[in-house]
């Protein structure tokens, strides 16, 4: 029991530490940065939840960013007619529709999910752009302040907490959650146990759509407008979520609670970035730092197995063969 409490507390140590570090070292960074940091972490967290559901099911999906935009366009369009309610319906509807599209493309084209997501990014961006034009927007989509206020600070914390609870219950307390994990681990075995992998995967896409919808709420409301781009730019929206998820999940041994870990991972990331910016990192360097960070984290996490193996080997070499 004591271990568990220490574990839970331990998880909060790193973000806390980082915050203190940057507050002390960097001028312009302090308690007043807190709302911005939290707000900025929330969107990648939501996207992170969406991607995590996919990862667990064994799928790779880089179209999550594009789906956020798609949902946002739909939401903004309906907000013009029905205000807040329209916005919510639009975002959710748009997100689920795009999720289903990707799901069915994956299911019936029978090609790797990664490839499907790449193709969908192209199609989805184009559809979002056309949709935006259709509803009278240009490349910037505006949301009336009366709507966006419900998703800005401090309400965004409520949304994220709610989403976190849903994520937790989903993974650890529902049938579909178990099935997603099972299919992701060993699809053939799951099939032998009576689970239907194709259906589980389609549902996984839909579930990711729920979190993408919330991300769309937050993203569109964050600055009051949404920018729709072409050319695959939306894929860059997955970098921060992926990093946050990886950072967070390394601590899974301390506390087996993925949603909280992901939230904290994103917060850490945002603190680091905002700290660097406050310390004088020019805007243009951000993308390079982001990219380098991502590759470093992926490189390290991908090679832990090899690392462990070489440690094992060096141990063995030191031992006496007779006692091996």
């Amino acid at each position: 029991m004591k271990n568990k409490i220490f574990g839970i507390l331990g998880v909060f140590v790193i973000p806390f530490f980082l915050f203190i570090f940057f507050s002390l070292v960097t001028p312009g960074f302090g308690l007043h940065s807190l709302p911005i940091i939290i707000s900025q972490s929330m969107i990648p967290t939501m996207i992170g939840f969406g991607m995590c559901v996919m990862f667990l099911c064994g799928l790779m999906d880089f179209s999550v960013g594009c789906r956020v935009i798609f949902a946002g366009v739909a939401g903004a369009a309906l907000a013009q007619y029905w205000g807040l309610v329209g916005f919510i319906i639009g975002c959710i509807g748009g997100s689920l529709v795009s999720a289903l599209l990707v799901a069915y493309l994956y299911r019936y084209l029978k090609i790797p999910s990664m490839v499907v997501s790449l193709g969908f990014v192209l199609i989805g961006e184009a559809l979002s752009y056309s949709g935006a034009e259709l509803f009278g927007f240009t490349s910037l989509i505006h949301i009336p302040p009366s709507v966006s206020v419900w998703f800005a600070f401090p309400y965004n914390i409520l949304w994220v907490t709610g989403a976190g609870i849903v994520f937790y219950l989903l993974l650890y307390h529902t049938k579909i959650g178990f099935h997603i994990i099972a299919v992701g681990e060993d699809e053939l075995l799951a099939k032998n146990m009576g689970v239907i992998p194709q259906n589980v995967k389609t549902i996984a896409y839909l579930l990711s759509g729920v979190f993408i919808a919330i991300a769309a709420f937050l993203q569109t409301s964050y600055a009051g407008f949404l920018s729709v781009t072409l050319g695959g730019g939306t894929m860059a929206m997955v970098f921060k979520p992926i990093m946050g998820v990886m950072i967070g999940l390394t601590l899974i041994r301390l506390w087996n609670n993925s949603p909280v870990l992901i939230i904290l991972g994103e917060i850490c990331l945002t603190i680091i970035f905002n700290g660097l910016i406050a310390a004088g990192l020019p805007d243009v360097f951000q993308s390079i730092v982001l990219g380098l960070f991502l590759l470093t984290i992926l490189g390290i996490s991908g090679n832990t197995e090899k690392f462990r193996e070489s440690i094992r080997r060096s141990h063995v070499r030191k031992m006496d063969p007779a006692g091996y």
């Binding site: 499907v116 199609i123 184009a126 050319g231």
Partner: peptide
């Protein structure tokens, strides 16, 4: 339009 070109290229790709 550029938009539609991207749409078509995405479909062709898939």
């Amino acid at each position: 339009s550029t938009v539609n070109q991207q749409l078509i290229k995405g479909l062709v790709f898939l």
